[in-house]
Amino acid sequence: MNRRIKEKIIEGFFFLNGIIVIGILVGIFVILVRNAWPAFHDVSVGDMIKWPSWNPDAYTTPTYGILPMLMSTLMVTLGSLAVAVPVGIGAAAYLSDVADPRVREIAKPIVEILAGIPSVVLGFLGIVLVGPMICKLTGRYNGLNAVNGSILLAVMALPTIISLSEDALGSVPRSYEEASMALGANKWQTVIQVKIPAAASGILAACMLGMGRAIGETMTVLMATGNAAEFPGSFLGPVKTMTATIAIELGEVAYHTTHYYMLFVVGLMLFIITFFVNLAADVFFHKHTRAR
């Protein structure tokens, strides 16, 4: 076969693959918007914000307040970052600068295997292990709360944060480290004051991607956070996240009702949030690679 034609076919094949992925993304967005749109005829945006709770099964008038679940999702996500970011950057710095190369070669794949644990297994650990531990530490009687969800989501976000941060630290030019050492800085000062700032945009991108994973996670939070509909009072109280609400209710909702459309509104909001978080991660990541 003519080499040029062959070349063209291969080129076309890869082009098609790229287009399909973009097509799927746009398609999902369009379906979400089309199913969410009718909700705005039934419920005003003002009511969605004003209503104190999400109660579609109300005895008399259903309410669709979205703030409690938005707040719940934010709390669990930020809580998970509070745990995962320090631990993740610490582990990454250890792997890239302290650990013996042989240790790193074993430890890094193990960290990445952590990403493969099914979320339902983590949720299970939340019920039988983390929950009772929280009870013991705080003297409360119910350990299904935002802290529990945060800890589990931190475990889920850690592999992403560690692996990508380690890559970012590893790509800091050796001359930086040498210059720092030559000025009399010790290893600790070099890592903290030179390498981590130099890799900051890469580390930030890693944290954003970890955050993207935490926001969209469903099964773990559904099992571990207690799912009370009220506006979350504290990290030690139960929360009901956006993902959990969709997962619990979409199975039994009557199609083409206000409740059904409102669930798509929640899905659309999640989509937009994760889209921007991932976009931000991408921007930071490019900044990082360009800086190199």
Binding site: Y59, T60, G226, A228, A229, E230
Partner: peptide, 19 residues
């Protein structure tokens, strides 16, 4: 959940209930 609401509560569940 539905049975208790219909037969006993005849109103809304407290939003503080852990589900």
């Amino acid at each position: 959940y539905g049975f208790l609401q219909e037969m006993v509560l005849k109103g809304n569940y407290s939003s503080k209930m852990n589900t």
